[in-house]
Simulated assay, not measured.
Amino acid sequence: MWLYVLIGIILLLAVVFIWLYNSLVALRNRVKNAWSQIDVQLKRRTDLIPNLVETVKGYAQHEKGVFEEVTRARSNLMSADSVKETQEANNMLTGALKSLFAVAENYPDLKANQNFLELQGQLAETEDKIAYSRQFYNDTVLMYNNKCQMFPSNIIASTFHFEESEFFEVEESGRAVPKVEF
């Protein structure tokens, strides 16, 4: 009788162990998938930028510094390897694009140009997708990190070297409340 109880306990522990291990693997893979979704949208944005820059260049040839800043930021984003590097490069590119659109404000003909308007619309759509992907990624990282830290799955996570993932955070200047004046 005791042998059956012991075998039952061992089987129950084995099932719990397998379930916890598999759930950690599944969450880790969801984090990787969520990151790849961000990567796809960032790639789409970096593909749109040269067309946007060329369109603006035709109108604002003397704004060389802005174009160089956008190009440098785009290059940094394309060469980023980690979440932190990508986050920093993304923030730099966002700032450079704001400068580019500020330049565009000074050229009424450019603002009416169909190419520019279409590219601007595609870029805005891509920015929305990046924001959604970043939110999904951070939610997935939260679930995964919680699983890595909570008992009893933390024992399995540390035993099998499941490492916590980084969140994709907004830079400090992006958290500031915009000032609206009339």
Rank of each mutant, 00 (worst) to 15 (best):
I9D: 00
K84I: 11
K64P: 03
E69Q: 15
L3C: 03
A157R: 04
F167Y: 14
V40F: 01
I10V: 07
V66H: 02
Q122E: 12
V70I: 04
K129E: 14
W35T: 06
P178S: 14
R30Y: 02
F101T: 08
K43S: 15
E54Q: 14
Q114I: 04
I10E: 00
L100P: 04
K64E: 12
E171Y: 03
L20E: 08
Y132R: 04
E171G: 13
E172A: 13
G121F: 03
V40L: 13
R74L: 06
E163S: 13
F182A: 07
P178K: 13
E125Q: 14
I156Y: 02
F167W: 12
D81V: 04
S165L: 00
Q37L: 03
D81T: 13
T159W: 00
Q120T: 11
N146W: 09
F162L: 04
A96P: 01
A89L: 08
Q122G: 07
I130Y: 00
N33Y: 00
L119Y: 05
R30H: 02
L6Q: 06
Q149P: 02
A73E: 00
S23E: 08
N90I: 02
A73M: 08
V25L: 10
N145L: 09
Q120C: 09
S153A: 09
T71A: 11
M143P: 04
L42K: 07
A80S: 07
D128R: 12
Q135M: 09
F116D: 05
N115Y: 01
F116R: 10
A89E: 07
P152T: 04
R74G: 06
E172V: 08
V180A: 13
I7N: 01
V15C: 09
E85Y: 00
D139A: 12
V177D: 01
K179S: 14
V31D: 04
T140P: 06
Q41H: 09
L20I: 00
R28L: 02
N145V: 03
R175K: 11
K111Y: 12
G121R: 15
T159Q: 05
Q149D: 15
K147H: 12
V103P: 00
M150Q: 10
A26G: 10
L110C: 10
K111L: 10
I38C: 02
F101M: 05
L97T: 09
V83M: 11
L12G: 13
F167M: 11
A73S: 06
L77E: 02
L42V: 05
Q87Y: 04
A124E: 10
D109H: 09
P152S: 00
Q122Y: 01
T140I: 05
G58Y: 10
F167E: 08
Y137M: 12
G65S: 15
L77N: 04
V16L: 10
R72T: 15
P50I: 03
F182T: 02
R44N: 15
H62E: 13
D81C: 00
F168L: 10
R72D: 14
I18N: 06
V66P: 05
Y4M: 15
K147C: 01
D39M: 04
Y144P: 06
N90S: 13
T55E: 08
T126H: 11
L100R: 03
V40K: 11
G121E: 07
K98G: 15
